[in-house]
């Protein structure tokens, strides 16, 4: 089990760097995880990350990319609910990278 240190506090992660206990998450941890992914967080990035956290709270899963794209389109509008927009924000996969930053487990169906 690996750990990361943020603001003097230690957090457990799995071998791929996903936070083990999502209840420990806060924006500083999110910011740190973003750095490890090489993502410079903007308001648009946070919007997706917060959307994912809300989705997880409601359904207890991290959605697959296709589902995430559709659900974001429904809530935030079609200009954001498309894979081009999401891949520009998270080049190595919106579900995978944004989930990690949001402190969620790897999406179901994500290999």
């Amino acid at each position: 089990m690996a750990t990361i240190d943020v603001n003097g506090k230690s957090y457990e992660t799995d071998e791929e760097g996903y936070l083990v206990d999502l209840s420990q998450w806060n924006e500083d941890v999110g910011g740190y995880l973003a750095q490890t992914e090489g993502v410079a967080m903007t308001e648009q990035h946070w919007e997706v990350v917060n959307f994912l956290r809300d989705y997880y709270n409601e359904f207890q899963i991290a959605p697959a990319v296709r589902v995430l794209t559709k659900a974001i389109g429904k809530k935030l509008g079609p200009e954001k609910g498309n894979s081009q927009y999401l891949y520009e924000l998270f080049p190595y996969g919106p579900a995978k990278q944004a989930c990690k930053i949001a402190g969620l487990p790897k999406p179901t169906g994500c290999v």
């Binding site: 409601e58 359904f59 207890q60 899963i61 959605p63 697959a64 589902v67 559709k70 659900a71």
Partner: peptide, 14 residues
């Protein structure tokens, strides 16, 4: 145990 009733609600999105 983690409950999964809520996850059935996501089936529609899938």
């Amino acid at each position: 145990v983690k409950g999964f009733e809520k996850t059935y609600g996501a089936l529609e999105d899938y």
